[in-house]
Design a protein around this nucleic acid. Sequence first.
DNA 1: TTATACTTGACCGATTTGGTCAACGGAGGA
DNA 2: TCCTCCGTTGACCAAATCGGTCAAGTATAA
Lengths: 206, 206
Amino acid sequence: MNEKFFALPKEKQNTIINAGYRVFSQNSYKKSPMSEIAGEAGISKSLLFHYFHNKKELYLFLWDNCAKLTIKYLTEYKCYEQKDLFEMMYRGMKAKIRIMNQYPNMGSFVIKAFYERDAEISSAIQDSFKSYKALKADKILESIDTTQFAEGIDVKMMYREMYLASEGYLWEMQRNGAVDVEKMEKDFTEMLNFWKKLYLRKEVEK
Amino acid sequence: MNEKFFALPKEKQNTIINAGYRVFSQNSYKKSPMSEIAGEAGISKSLLFHYFHNKKELYLFLWDNCAKLTIKYLTEYKCYEQKDLFEMMYRGMKAKIRIMNQYPNMGSFVIKAFYERDAEISSAIQDSFKSYKALKADKILESIDTTQFAEGIDVKMMYREMYLASEGYLWEMQRNGAVDVEKMEKDFTEMLNFWKKLYLRKEVEK
DNA sequence: TTATACTTGACCGATTTGGTCAACGGAGGA
DNA sequence: TCCTCCGTTGACCAAATCGGTCAAGTATAA
């Protein structure tokens, strides 16, 4: 790819990136026209081909960008260093919301890319997916202090339940289009409080 | 449309319908080729055009089929006549799973269709969407017996939370492709039991 | 054999595709 | 004022794809 792309103002870069995520997340790789991406980004097709020499290059750049950004934000928010489960979930959610705010269609793009069957790119996608695996939610519970929860709680079930509800919420928001950071953080804080009241060991009830 | 379509064996009908849902749910209306649908259904493009005179007709038939089927199953399972919230959720989930098993891509199709911007069809979709509205989850809680829950529970929050987790679960399953009815029902029953233990008024603790 | 219904491959004109390229236009230096 | 870059574009191309048609092929039943 042409390094001059990075010399562009960040804002312009993001406009192009988001146009890419939009179009690629709405259609299969093959049926996603470069012309549509260019048009949505407000530049000519020629210029888009000036920055990215062909469609595959643009697509894989967008894919790499997902991985990099996700890892960057998750570590920046230090959500995997937490011992308090609720604090960890709160930080993770905040990171996801911030990404979603900047790149509203990145989530759909990732999923679509993962299941893309086109021979030209699917292998490249599958290869680089290994780096994502490290973030899988399986081993998260191990670093968590479990003494904070009320007795008799199935901790694994509880976490799975909270995780699913969070994902469901994010999905609902994305589907509805308007990504309102403040509303989402408020909603999620409410959910967290509801869970805390439910799951945390009751010290002194008033 | 050609009524002879309905004379086909149900199995063949569903093959064609599912091919339609797959292709239309993966691409925008305009970028979804009839040839691909025909190919995936194992019939020639000509024959597809024999049953549905043009693309729009097929698309709107698929759309109508969603509404009809959803209403049919939800009433068949009597999930809106329940007073017990958990029983209602269980029946609703069972209906959804059964639909999902028969038409794995119907869910994605509905969402995509709702947000379809193509002038040729978007108005027709928006019009017929009213019939769906009756099923909206807003007024569900009104018919539920709320005396069954433990004290201090925010019932609205609780329901929203369970709803989101269910949706999150369904979405996760659909994304993973293989729709395994038995596993899904088992998983959901487990979730329900977890919730019951959590939310139901504790009569006599052993 | 014949009549009927089902199914198809070949075909059409129109549109769209990824990608190229000569040229335009503005900024800055001499 | 002229010249030289360099970001940017519209016009262009060959190839592929699109929705839709139609005459002909095939199976079936009488």
